[in-house]
């Protein structure tokens, strides 16, 4: 049998990572994770037969060295992780050390006739790249879109192995970390989303979009510059290639130009409405309904009309 080694930086999606590995026909399932994070019950229930633990600080350069050690001993077919920044760095380093293939942000993974085949977004997210990975093991990070459901057999008691290794260390020091509070909203589950972009001139003006979202029992999302550059909204509100991929019933893009990298995140939204005063903005081509108007003039009119009508959102 070919085993899967799952590297977990947090345990939120351990059940999905385990069921995806099981669906690929991999067994046994082994988790590699920090000692303080492990949840034996979750691991047992979802079919992990072993948990290998470490006590390293969260510095990818160091963790990758330990991962190489674990892989050399356990010889898994696939090293699987969530598509997160630290995980990609750890996998990239370990793959280079071992001379192996690594692919990130996959939306799908399959093994057919012994060959690992993945689909991942390329060319700004406008295209699917279908790729085959040569050799074994291979390193794969997956997006939630790639999670597979599978009836896993629970394990009575996973084996816990602590790895304690004298590690070569560089001078990297984690001096400080400010943890941002997670918002209570998971955009990828929201039914109605109002997306805001650079068309808004000030942070205060987002109130207009918030008001509209509230009336529709929806939530606010944004394009990358709003969260990453301007920091008007937290990172988990970013819709796009490197952010959330929404599958809402309704998406209203307000003041968003519609760069390829944003559009990939809204492809699975059912109805898309664009409000943008630039008739040439690419977002109009990606929309079901376009409104070519200044958001500062149009939103107040729309909000007033919605308030006055007796119409209410079916969600809430």
């Amino acid at each position: 049998m070919s085993s899967a080694l799952i590297y977990a930086e947090d345990w939120e999606h351990i059940p999905e990572l385990l069921s995806t590995s099981a669906a690929l026909g991999l067994s046994p399932l082994i988790i590699f994770s920090h000692r303080d994070l492990i949840d034996i019950k979750v691991a047992a229930k979802n079919g992990a037969s072993e948990i290998i633990t470490h006590r390293l600080e969260p510095i990818p350069t160091y963790i990758s060295r330990l991962l190489v050690q674990v892989i050399s001993e356990r010889q898994p077919r696939i090293i699987l992780g969530e598509a997160k920044k630290n995980v990609r760095e750890i996998f990239g380093r370990a793959a280079q050390r071992m001379g192996k293939a690594c692919v990130n942000n996959c939306n799908n993974i399959d093994i057919a006739e012994g060959i690992v085949r993945i689909i991942r977004p390329i060319l700004g997210g406008g295209y699917n790249g279908i790729q085959e990975l040569i050799g074994s093991p291979v390193f794969v990070t997956i997006r939630p879109e790639a999670f597979k459901k599978y009836p896993v057999k629970s394990v009575e008691e996973p084996l816990i192995t602590e790895i304690d290794l004298k590690l070569k260390r560089d001078s990297i020091k984690l001096v400080d970390k400010k943890t941002t509070k997670r918002s209570e909203v998971d955009l990828s589950l929201a039914k109605v989303i109002v997306g805001v972009g650079r068309g808004f001139r000030n942070k205060e003006d987002l109130k207009l979009a918030e008001e509209l979202a509230e009336l529709l029992n929806g939530v606010i999302g944004c394009s990358r510059p709003i969260s990453s550059d301007l920091k008007w909204l937290p990172e988990d509100r970013h819709i796009g290639l490197s952010g959330k991929w929404i599958r809402s019933r309704l998406y209203i893009a307000v003041g968003i130009s519609g760069q390829i990298q944003h559009v990939v995140g809204i492809k699975n939204a059912e109805t898309v409405i664009a409000i943008n005063n630039d008739p040439d903005a690419p977002i109009h081509k990606e929309s079901d309904y376009s409104i070519i108007a200044d958001l500062y003039e149009f939103l107040p009119v729309l909000i007033k009309k919605l308030r006055e009508s007796k119409l209410r959102s079916i969600y809430g």
């Binding site: 001379g99 192996k100 293939a101 690594c102 692919v103 085949r117 977004p121 390329i122 060319l123 997210g125 406008g126 295209y127 699917n128 790249g129 279908i130 790729q131 085959e132 990975l133 040569i134 050799g135 291979v138 990939v264 492809k267 898309v272 109009h284 081509k285 990606e286 929309s287 079901d288 309904y289 376009s290």
Partner: peptide
């Protein structure tokens, strides 16, 4: 170690009204 088998645009039919 990674080979492209195919590249396909993700096309979504929108109404464009």
């Amino acid at each position: 170690l990674v080979k492209y088998c195919d590249i396909k645009a993700i096309k979504v039919g929108r109404k464009n009204v």
